[in-house]
Design a protein around this nucleic acid. Structure first.
Lengths: 110, 110
DNA sequence: ACGGTATATACCGTTGGGGGTATGTTCGAG
DNA sequence: CTCGAACATACCCCCAACGGTATATACCGT
């Protein structure tokens, strides 16, 4: 079974995920929209299903695939420790530190 | 050249990224810490460099590899349209909508 | 100039993922 | 009961990424 990042590494599978963001889709709908054959789409969806990206609901012959949040949450969690690298970059972190020190000491020292 | 998600799909490369979060490292340091040979580490770093994950600074024979934010930002941006799936799930979205409507109309209608 | 250290790269063999196609299976319509 | 629609899977081949090893390159100390 492929890991979460391995699943996301294929553009075709990311496109499927993006389509499913708009709501559930059947296999043939996805195959038509993305221009691939039905067997290949079924295989992509099988991989996505094994990794927890999608769930399936049966309706006669149709299978409705729906996007699940869990694997995306894992990516977000993996990313979390790195957010400081770009979130506190252009918003004057140095000034903030200076202000904190001023509050503590009553004014700039140097 | 491998795409960003392809780069992240290999656990060894994610481990390198995690080590570099603590600060710059040389090739042999990383190789020792992660228990791989030097040539393999050089190849991983080459892949990471091509994809923009790291930058290099030469110092005599040593090469100091440093983590760069850009590719991680791209992942975060890709993830952004999906955040609603888990962020507004258990924190009473319904109540919030009710409160917003009350502010608009002056009170509940029904 | 020499030897050792640090790193990059070329080369090779393996392997597993990916696309293509054919076939199996299930289910509803008539 | 038969036919067709919708989907899954089995089988095939191909290729590129990965690990391993040997080798090339650059630089420092002596």
């Amino acid at each position: 079974m492929l890991s979460i990042f391995e699943v996301l590494s294929l553009p075709a599978r990311r496109e499927i995920i993006e389509r499913l963001r708009l709501g559930p889709r059947s296999v043939s709908e996805l195959a038509d929209e993305l221009g691939v054959s039905q067997p290949i789409m079924s295989k992509h969806l099988r991989v996505l299903r094994d990794a927890g990206f999608v769930s399936v609901r049966a309706d006669a012959q149709r299978r409705w695939y729906e996007l699940r949040a869990e694997p995306l949450i894992e990516v977000a969690q993996w990313l979390e420790p790195y957010r400081w690298m770009w979130e506190h970059r252009l918003d004057r972190l140095g000034d903030r530190l200076d202000a904190m020190r001023d509050e503590e000491t009553g004014g700039p020292r140097s």
